[in-house]
């Protein structure tokens, strides 16, 4: 007895929220077997689950361990569904270059933002951690990104963020990119000071900010 599409997506979302990796894989496989649209399943199932997990995180029901387990489940589901995404259903996806600035190897926050952005439909190019400022600019140019997202957890490496903006200014391409910043020591005031386009306090907020920066779409 096949459950309805909406109900299946809801179960998929629940499996992510419940941190149940096996169940997420099982349900993702069922989406394919039953012939439903993979992208829609990611959007209404996996991403919805991650979105709800993000809300629980904001409400302090969930903490980093729970959020990571949800993302593990979401990634396991993505592995199943991604190969089945129809190209024409992708539409226009905004590109984001993300990374942790040079001198810092803490990437837990960056990874969460990446996951949330991906589940929100952005195409994310992850440079990793300990990345020199120039690499962000080169990569953004190369992939024609709309957003450069910079993360650091350390006060000692914050200056690298400003350097990225300086490089954009020197090359007269500042207006081609939106720069968003985040991480433990970062504040709105710091973002304003270095001339970033936005600051977000956590991963869920980063998605809202990214949507706003590209004009509400994505």
């Amino acid at each position: 007895m096949s459950v309805g599409k909406e109900e299946l997506f809801k179960e998929l979302s629940d499996a992510v929220v419940n941190m149940d990796e096996d169940e997420t894989v099982l349900l993702s496989t069922k989406v394919i077997v039953d012939g439903y649209d993979a992208y829609e399943a990611i959007d209404k199932g996996l991403a919805d689950g991650m979105d709800r997990a993000g809300k629980l995180f904001e409400e302090e029901e969930y903490f980093i361990p729970e959020l990571l387990m949800c993302s593990d489940a979401m990634y396991a589901g993505l592995d199943v569904l991604k190969p089945h995404i129809k190209l024409d259903s992708e539409g226009e996806r905004y590109r984001v270059v993300i990374g942790v600035v040079e001198g810092d190897t803490h990437d837990i926050g960056k990874n969460l933002v990446k996951i949330m952005l991906e589940s929100a439909g952005f195409e994310v190019f992850d440079l990793g951690r300990d990345i020199p400022p120039i690499r962000f600019v080169e990569k953004a140019k190369e992939v024609n990104a709309k957003i450069i997202a910079l993360s650091t957890l350390m006060t000692t490496t914050m200056d690298g963020m400003e350097e990225v903006i300086n490089i954009l200014n020197q090359h007269n391409i500042r207006d081609q990119y939106k720069v968003m910043v985040g991480g433990g020591p970062i504040s709105q005031r710091f973002a304003d000071k270095i001339g970033a386009d936005g600051y977000s306090v956590n991963a869920a907020e980063a998605v809202r900010l990214a949507r706003k920066l590209v004009g509400g779409a994505a």
Binding site: I64, P65, E66, L68, M69, D72
Partner: peptide
């Protein structure tokens, strides 16, 4: 590693 440790708290 931090991520591994926090996963292990649940697993």
């Amino acid at each position: 590693g931090a991520e591994n440790l926090v996963r292990l708290t649940l697993k």
